[in-house]
Design a protein around this nucleic acid. Structure first.
Lengths: 363, 363
DNA sequence: CTGAAAGCGCTTACAG
DNA sequence: CTGAAAGCGCTTACAG
């Protein structure tokens, strides 16, 4: 009786409640002309039968749109993982889509927003935003909550964003190198205008200044967050008459590029050159040597973005428009004291002690 | 006439297209038994009338579920990218979800399939399947088309799968090393039972045999497709009394692990040891040295999987249940002739010539 | 408050 | 490939 596969209908519930289909329909639609007793009974039976509405309009799990720009890379991968995992816990589906920076021109912001609204997305999460102001406005007009993860540009007013403590990370990376005894330390950064680059370089300069160490102009470069730029930038640094003994790279890809530039020149890492990255993507642990880096909690950032997005969608007022999660230094094998395996000549601030090993344990 | 507030119905569109309501219904539901001309006309009119379905439920873009197991990694990233890009072209939304191997126990296969069917997924794409036979059966019962990318286990009867020419890849990798003059070549593989491992090791053995080179038992190891296993396996190989001069690793992670094992021992790559990987994920190009590897066209595989899934969903009969896309050797910097920068002592089969460079150009 | 009856929007098995 | 016809699930105006 009642094959398990059969979706319950109003008739099913009506029969078991001993009322008419019309009455059940009224309860489902919240009409007022039903007696409290009947309503209670019917509601109970609706739940019991797992009534989900007519086919096709089954109560869909709510969906959230997760947008990345251009190509997926190791960085996106972590954020995506965090969003997907949190979405699983919240019983929300994640629609993953890519948007090329060129798409902005091809498809109007308004039509993009309209499509998302028509597809009944609860919210939109964008990673390392290239969003234009027009797009932000279009999403707002479509009443689509928006959360940006690690925005490339300064958080716009009223745009919810999730980042990490880039300044503190830059500070920690640099202090780690200083603690190992380095004095000639270079910074190989991302595009000058991005907020993450700015915060990291300020952390770098702050640490250098506090230690009374000079920062030469040619030791600070702003490039792209890419491997090739790390190779090129590393080459210019290593070919200087007086080259640095350590490089703080603004992300892992740049750091790996620096290591490659060093290898090509016969410069050993970490014996002759220490390199610190930023992000702690999967690239970092798999390097040779494994990379000392500043960990951004990218999965957590993705998870927080998802939860914030749902709260916005639920109409909650959220106190702050920007959250920063803590970064932490992860010491692996790409950093050591300068000058060939010499031990740190003074006690480091607390994280240098573990620097010779590369246990992968966050410090 | 026709007040703006009236929501268009199938009848509205049918009337303006001059076809029956039934035909319009078929178009809306993506049935295959409509002529292309009629379909095009109706689709045009649906759009023109802003048809949104009964009761305000917007016509959802069809969705496909893309399932990965456990954690996203560099390998998944490429496949996901391919699926998402192709989905964009086909105007299908991709719902990304993860399923832990443990989930199989927690949630019954039937309820998983039912949920996906209730969410009106057109099809399910699973990457490197850990699917159980029960799950496959449950999806079939729910009439959900299934496509598996690079199945870990032999393609089950009737399961559509997309892979690559692993045997040819294993052959090409090994011939490349032989062409460079290597004779003591080891194979560091994945789990013994996986089809990809089996095909790759057979390619390896085939090339060795054809060249009249012996394969020592201790030179062949089956492990996991993981970095740590590459480090451990590389260590055992390098610590042998007579260690190999080249290692063919069954994926990029293993290869990077071998390179790390070499670095720790002061063994230089490629001068003292050549290493070839498999996959050509983003890890390969960013290594130090950049990795010579066998490229699997992972994005293309993802794209093909998506398109096949849609064809299955449209009820098309598909001739073959398994497709293999071509692999190709990509020569970068981790391979060279044995014995310290000596040039290849005989002309290689055609790809060895470029082996000293690492241009990243597929050969 | 309740439900019989009419009717709406859609789907589908089937005949042509 | 098309559509007439049957039918499903639901809603609603209205009689009681």
């Amino acid at each position: 009786m009642g094959g398990k596969g059969d979706r319950p209908t109003l008739a099913t519930v009506a029969a078991s409640a001993g009322v008419s289909v019309a009455t059940v329909s009224k309860v489902v639609n919240g009409r007022s002309d039903v007696s409290p007793a009947t309503r209670a009974l019917v509601e109970h039976l609706l739940a019991q039968h797992d009534y989900v509405g007519r086919r096709g309009e089954a109560v869909q799990r709510p969906t959230v749109e997760l947008v990345f720009y251009n190509d997926l890379n190791a960085y996106y991968t972590e954020v995506v993982q965090g969003v997907v995992r949190a979405a699983g816990e919240e019983d929300v589906a994640v629609v993953l889509s890519s948007r090329s920076t060129a798409a902005t021109a091809e498809q109007s912001a308004a039509s993009w927003a309209r499509e998302l609204a028509a597809a009944t997305r609860r919210a939109v999460i964008v990673v390392t935003s290239e969003l234009t102001a027009t797009e932000v406005a279009a999403l707002a007009r479509a009443r689509l909550p928006l959360v940006v993860v690690d925005p490339n540009n300064l958080p716009r007013t009223r745009v919810m964003s999730v980042g990490s403590t880039n300044f503190a990370g830059g500070l920690a990376a640099t202090q780690h190198l200083i603690g190992l005894g380095h004095e000639r330390i270079a910074y190989l950064g991302g595009p000058a205008r991005t907020t993450s680059n700015q915060a990291r370089v300020h952390g770098f300069r702050g640490a250098m200044e506090a230690a009374g160490l000079p920062v030469r102009d040619e030791y600070v470069q702003y490039r792209q967050f890419r491997y090739e730029e790390g190779v090129a930038g590393g080459a210019t640094l290593l070919d200087l008459r007086e080259s640095p003994t350590a490089v703080f790279a603004a992300n892992d890809e740049i750091a790996l590029g620096v290591i490659e530039a060093a290898r090509v020149r016969g410069v050993r890492v970490p014996e002759d050159l220490s390199v610190v990255g930023f992000d702690d993507t999967q690239l970092a642990a798999l390097g040779s040597p494994p990379l000392t880096t500043v960990r951004q909690p990218l999965r957590e950032m993705g998870a927080v973005a998802l939860r914030r997005a749902l709260r916005l969608a639920a109409g909650e007022e959220i106190e702050s428009h920007h959250i920063e999660l803590a970064t932490e230094l992860v010491v692996r094998g790409s950093t050591a004291a300068p000058g060939r395996r010499v031990l740190p000549r003074r006690a480091p601030e607390g994280d240098g002690a573990a620097s010779a090993g590369f246990s992968g344990v966050p410090v």
